[in-house]
């Protein structure tokens, strides 16, 4: 049993930290028959306890900071955090706003950034592939 088994069976949990729903809809689009992420073993789960990858969207509003941290802690190791969309990567149009505690990498360590407003489903699937790579690097370091 090695980290390689994780590669083909990434269960993702989706956290919305104040996103406008644009990125969330693109995540759902990545799971539709047109893109079919399940053929790589990617599955959307309903609880962080089952998750391997956290898909985080939104600029992290003040309210969501604590919740995002808790969701991160509830996810069993080994795990990957993906920041989806410009808001989560840099704050986007809410950059330096008084109302946000983000971007996401100020709150939890982010492994993969996916740019776009919103990013296309292909970009999100590409991001998940990058997450495999990160896990492989983790294994190589051991």
């Amino acid at each position: 049993m090695s980290i390689k088994d994780l590669n083909r069976s990434l269960w993702v949990f989706h956290v919305n930290t104040g996103s406008c729903n644009g990125c969330d809809i693109e995540i759902v689009a990545a799971l539709t028959p047109r893109y079919d992420a399940e053929r790589f073993g990617v599955k959307l789960v309903g609880t962080p306890r089952h998750a391997d990858v956290l898909l985080v969207t939104g600029p992290v509003t003040k309210d969501m900071k604590d919740k995002l941290k808790r969701v991160y802690d509830q996810t069993p190791d080994p795990k990957v955090v993906m920041s989806i969309g410009n808001c989560g990567n840099s704050g986007g149009c809410f950059y330096e706003s008084y109302n946000i505690d983000g971007p996401i990498d100020k709150v939890v360590p982010v492994d993969v950034y996916v740019a776009g407003c919103p990013p296309r489903p292909e970009a999100i699937i590409d991001g998940v592939v990058k997450a495999w790579k990160k896990l492989e690097d983790l294994e190589a370091k051991k």
Partner: peptide
């Protein structure tokens, strides 16, 4: 109308 996971997917999930 999807392609779907490979037949050994449950084994991979279990190992993970």
């Amino acid at each position: 109308a999807r392609i779907g996971p490979p037949l050994r997917q449950p084994f991979i999930d279990l190992k993970k």
